[in-house]
Structures are given as structure tokens and as C-alpha cells.
Write a protein that binds this DNA or RNA. Structure first.
Lengths: 218, 218, 218, 218
DNA sequence: CTCTAAACGAGACGGTACGTCGGGTCTTGTG
DNA sequence: CACAAGACCCGACGTACCGTCTCGTTTAGAG
């Protein structure tokens, strides 16, 4: 084997980056996002507020969008996705978390803006947004389902996790930005709806029957 | 005596606006939106392509955002919300329409961008977006439900129309922009999910029972 | 002879122009000129303040510059060029008048601006400016000289009226706009200078001599 | 020890300005001024012709007027104010220079336009115009006089330099823009006039007399 | 204890679009 | 015709960000 310290091997030459700088930028970005929304998140302002040169910001995040993704992701770090013991509890907790985050105009608006950017550049921005943001929102639902499967509460074939996640996240997002507040009543109603789905499927599975209301496409 | 002329009564003074101009702008805006997304929707470009002075555009739409709303709304004019005869058919048609529109990156992206703007200015932009866009997407679902109520297929108390609409539109939107394509399989799965809700509720109503899976909010 | 009223023969068909309108425009133009200088003299503002449509202004003065000429000329209508009885008194009065007019920043500035326009369009604007403005300023000097010649105070070959006028008007104008105030001391000094010219010429004429200080050009 | 480096001491931080850029702008401004007068001196055009972003122009000259001042001043850099050996020669040279510059419609017109602007903003524009332009035209006369005083040709109390300068510059300017060409004959006549002033004053000084034509202000 | 390589602050730079202002023309309906 | 009202084209204004660049100045480990 060659020399030594594999962890220190990737030590890059030159002056190392200042960790405080990174924090200052992140903090400034989050503050601006919260105060003025996506439109207020300008590289110029971020640099100024962080007390940092624009170059320094660009050295870390190659474009404004990526910084925005980072800033929103930082907000998502507050997500609590702990195990609540049951599917119902986990689902409620997950939906509550989603509503809490997206209800905030700056966060909800920023997420929507980044989704819009994703549409323009699915490979670049889209990949980043999905990887850092959408996935984490989806996880709020999918983790709950997976835990429930693990517990034996439901069977894997009974639920399309991806669909479920899109339904939950999409409904909360749209309610937050287009329709009104994703308040407690909304969350309750959404949970009831999902409960009814579960009820129907458990029943149908037990009876080995098919929902007669299901029609053929076309 | 000749008939009265009510249309000429509210004639505004001054040179009337040129209808052709209005069309040219709308058309240019839609084209640019389709070709290059929201980012490509520039007042400068719109005016140039429409063969019109920038002032003329601003005279009609006081800002870029309002023009964008108009352009997306114009795209929504292609929505076919005819009566298909049954709730199931209407729902499928409505979801298909939503998917068709939002699947288009320019339209879906633009809608998301405008939702983002709504978060920054709920009174101004938000009101316009809701009035011209969100409402029309919701109508795809709510009309279907209302027709079904009219037909006696379902009872009004069995469904929260607003929730349902947010679920459908939100799910389609999020799938389109964040997760993947809202393709036929997705639409089918979504319809199945809704069918199961209906099944559960019809059953529970007949039995005068309550879904035991429903829990109390915590 | 043909029909009637020769003075009314040039009666044009259609609705006659409103004299009050003309006055309102002139007044508005002068006010704006006085309040905000040439830069503040916009067709839009003039029309608005006169309570008149832009068309109406353009019907009378084909361009902004011509209106400006008219407005300054209207200010020049206050010139008092009465006979003071002697060359000295007339000259003093003329220079005082010039100083009074050009000292006013709006008038002096406007005159300078119109001279600038003249440089761009000597035939059109230039002709109008010369005809309505420069000539009248020159007259302040030339009338004095001509009266003096009439009285026999000086001989026509002793003075180049045009040069004299340019010297006086030019000096006052430049002092007003570039150097400082054309105050009483300045006017006095200018008169003294001209008096010395007259003294020299009278003396030289009497002696039938030539000023030895005059050198050959080149 | 090596010599000190005072020039490098006051080095400003950041990327230094490109000298070539500055020249390109100046050149473009002068060309446009010469070709199309003040009206043709557009920030947009200057930037385009200089192959430079508009921002770059604004970084140096905060407004169009200041750039115009600079452009005219650059034209004034061609002034030759060398010592010709005698008051007469220096005066002739100075007047010729003034005539040469102001005869050019673009330069004369621009100078007039800037004087007009000075009237609107005496502190800002006015200061710049006086400092960069008027002073330099005045110097054509005042330097000649001061040299003459140095040589003993005339005595300081015999001439009001400021008045003289305004007379010369003003007369040339007004002749150029309002009356006709400041051609050779005009320059000669102006010089003759000034020569006669000198003659009168020398004579009166020698005789210790007063010009009887001088009257008291009234 | 120098050498090297990168981080860093500062600010110039090219670019694109913004929304506004003003000039001058054209097009209505009404007096 | 005159007139009011206002649409329309055009060109320029000055500003705001974007992302890139070029400087001089640290700051660390490597030799």
C-alpha cells in the first residue's frame, strides 16, 4: 500500500476555504430568502450581507439557482422525520411538516420558483432540485409508508408510494400558493382522504374483490 | 324607431385600441412562452415579435408578470371541459387536460413561476393568478364533481371539492415538474386512488359507519 | 369687385380656432419655461397645463422647438426699447434690458438651448431663432446706434453695428451662463469699454489718424 | 536604497480600469458629437460605437451631460495657447482659436447646450462646465493679457480681464450660432475694436485724463 | 524560510432587460 | 375644420443583476 492517511490524502493545496465564510453566505441567503422571497435573493445582496466578495460566493455555488437550492435545502434541514410508531401518526407528522414548510411564503415560493427553473433545465437545475428538495419532501411520505410496510401495517402492493407522495406534496403546495392556507382543517381532510383509500384497499384485499367504480381508461 | 345602441353608449373617448395589436401581442407572448419558457418571455422580445412598441405592451399589461398570466391563461383557453356524461369520464377528462397542459414544460414551468410570484405579492399577482389560472385548473375537477352531484351520482357531503381539486392539480403539477412525467400510468393510478376514496365513502355511507382507520388529530 | 368683406375673405372654412386656447398654451409654455427651464418644457406638460389636447398644440407649433421659440419670444415682448435721447442712455438701457432678460436662468438657458438647436438645423430652427430672438436682442444695440446716427452723434462708418451687437449680447449671455452674474458692475464696465472705443474713434477721426496699435492680420 | 514608489502607493483595490476602454469611449463620444451634434450624443450610441457596455460608460460619467462636457473638453485639448511674443499676436491667436472651435457647429452647439444645462443645474453641471470649458476659453484671452502684463506692454489696472474674456468668447459664440460666421473679417473687426480700447486707455493714462464720453450709471 | 497554490476582497466589464419618459403621428367621436 | 382624448411607434434614459475577469493580498502546507 502507498504512503499514509487516506482521509488527508484529498487535502488540496493552497489556502483552505474558510468555514465561517460558507456559513455567512448560507445565512445571508436564507435571511434574504425569508425576508424578500426568491426575487430578493440576488448574488449581489447575498455577498454584501455576508460581507464577502461576489467571487467567493460563485466559487462555492456556480450560479444563483444553485445557491437558492442550497438555501431552501438548508431550511429543509429542520425537518423532523422521526418514527411516530404508526402509519397514521407518521403520515400526519409528515403532512404537518410539509405544510409547515410550504406555508411559509418564502419557502413555498422559492420551491415553486425552483420547480419552474427545473422545467427550463431538467438535467442541470432539475437534477439538483429533485436531489436536494423534492426527494426530501417525498421522503416525508415515503418513509412513513416504508416504516408501515416494515411494521406489517400495509402490504407493498397496496400503495404506489410515488403517487402518494406527489399527491400529498402537490396538494399542500398548491393549497399553500394558489388556493389558501394549508391549515389544520386542510391537513385533516387530506388525511381522511388517504385513510379512506387505505380502508377501501384493505377491504378489497380481504374480499379479494375489485373496486367496481374503477373504469377502464380511454 | 331603430333599436337602441347600448354597445355604442359606453364608447370611450379617444382613439380606440387596435384589436389586431392585442392579438399580435398575445400571440407573440404565447409563442415565446412555448419556445423559451418564462425566462424567454421578455417585454422587449414580445414587443419586437409582435411588431409593436414596448409602450403599447405596457399600456395593456402593466408589468411582465401580468402579461405572463395572460399568456398562460390564453393557453388555458384550449381546455375542453365538456360534459362526458359521468363522473368517472369527466374526472378522467379533467385530469387528462390538466396533465396535458402542465406536462408542457413551458406551461407547467410558467404556472409554477407565477405561483412563486404569487407568494411575493398575494394581493396583486396572487389575485390575478388565482382568478385567471388556478381557478380554471380547479374547475376541471370541480365541474366534474358538480355535474355528478347534479346527476345524483354522489352526494354533496361526500366530497370536499376544494381539497379534491388541490389534490388533483397539485399532484399533476408536482409530478410534471419534480418527479417525472404525468403519463397515462400516473393518471390511471391517480384515478384509481380517487375511485377508492369514492368506494370507501359510498360503502361507509350505506353502512352508516365510520372509517375505523380515521384517527383523531394529534 | 367680388362679393364682400375683403378682410374676411381669408376666412377659412370649418370651425375657427379658439383664441383662448392659443393664450392658454402660450401661458403654460412660459410658466413651465420659467419654473423648470427648457428641460421642463415638454409638449405633454404644456398641453396638460393648458388643459388642451396635444394635437391642438401641434396644430399651432409644428414642433417643440418652435413652441420654445415662441415662448421665449413672448418673454422678449417685455423689452422696452424706447428712445432715451442719447446714444449713451440708449446703450445703457439696451444693455440693461439684455442683462435683465438673460440673467433669468430660464430665459438665458432657453436662448442658449435654442442657439444649440440652431447649430443642428440652421435653415429651419436657426432661421426661426434668428428671426424671433437674436434679431430682437441685436436691436437693443442697433436701434441705439441708428438713432445716434440719426442725431449725428456718430458717423455710420465709425461703427460696425453687427459686431457691436454681437459683442454686447454675447458678453452678457456668456457672463450670465458661464462666468457669473451680469450685474451692475459688469454692465458699467462693458459700457466703459464701449465708451473708450467711441472715444478712440472720434479722436482718430478728428486727427485723421490711424490707431498705431492696429496690426495686420496673419 | 531604491527610490520610493509613490505612484504604486495609492493603488486602489480591485481590478483597475482599462485605459483603452476610456479612450474608446472618449473617442466615440467625440466622433458622435462631431457627426451629429449634441443630440446625437447618446449613451446608447456611445457605448455601441466604443464596443463597450452601457454600464461601463456610466461608471465613468454618471450622466449624459457629464460625458458631453468631457467630449467637448477633449476637443478643447487641441487648443494651442503658446506664447506669440506680443499681446497683439497672442490676442489674435486666442481669438482665432476660439473662432476655430466655436465655428464648428457641433462644438459651438454643444457648448451652448451645456451652458443651457448649466442654467438648470448651476451647482452640478454648471460647475463642471465652468471648470472644464468656460475657463479654458477664457484662458485664451486671459493668458494673453497676463503675458502682456508680464512683458510690461500694459498695466494691470488698464484692463478687466474677465470682462474682456466674456466679450471675446461671447461675441465669437453669438456670431457663430446666431448671426453668421465668425470669419476672418469678423475676427479682424473684433481685434480692431479691442485695439481701439487699448489705444484710448493708453492715451488717457498718459494724459492722466478721463474719457469724457463716460457717463454716470443711472 | 522560501515557494506555490488557492482563497479572498474589490471592483471593472460585457450583457440583457427593466419600466419610464418624451417626441411626434394617427384615429376616433363631438362641436 | 377645431378640438379632446388617447392609441401608437420610436428611441433613449438610468438602473439592476448576472456571471466573468483581473488585480493585489492573505494563508496555509510543501520543500
Amino acid at each position: 500500500m502507498t504512503a499514509a492517511d487516506p482521509p488527508a490524502a484529498n487535502r488540496r493545496p493552497g489556502r483552505p476555504r474558510d468555514a465561517a465564510t460558507e456559513q455567512a453566505i448560507t445565512r445571508a441567503a436564507r435571511e434574504l430568502l425569508a425576508e424578500q422571497g426568491v426575487g430578493g435573493l440576488t448574488m449581489e445582496q447575498v455577498a454584501a450581507r455576508a460581507g464577502v466578495a461576489k467571487t467567493t460566493v460563485y466559487r462555492r455555488w456556480p450560479s444563483k439557482v444553485e445557491l437558492a437550492v442550497h438555501a431552501v435545502a438548508a431550511t429543509f434541514d429542520t425537518i423532523d422525520a422521526g418514527d411516530r410508531g404508526s402509519l397514521a401518526a407518521d403520515m400526519r407528522a409528515g403532512i404537518d411538516e410539509a405544510a409547515r414548510l410550504l406555508r411559509e411564503p418564502s419557502t413555498g415560493g422559492a420551491y415553486a420558483a425552483l420547480l419552474a427553473e427545473s422545467a427550463r433545465d431538467p438535467e442541470g437545475v432539475g437534477r439538483a432540485v429533485r436531489g436536494s428538495l423534492s426527494t426530501r419532501l417525498h421522503a416525508l411520505v415515503s418513509q412513513a409508508v416504508e416504516r408501515a410496510i416494515g411494521r406489517g401495517e400495509i402490504r407493498p402492493d397496496m400503495v404506489d408510494v410515488d403517487l402518494l407522495a406527489d399527491v400529498v406534496v402537490g396538494a399542500v403546495l398548491h393549497r399553500a400558493l394558489a388556493t389558501g392556507e394549508p391549515d389544520a382543517a386542510f391537513v385533516d381532510a387530506l388525511i381522511d382522504l388517504l385513510s379512506d383509500v387505505a380502508y377501501a384497499r384493505l377491504l378489497l384485499a380481504k374480499r379479494q374483490a375489485t373496486n367496481p367504480l374503477r373504469t377502464q381508461p380511454g
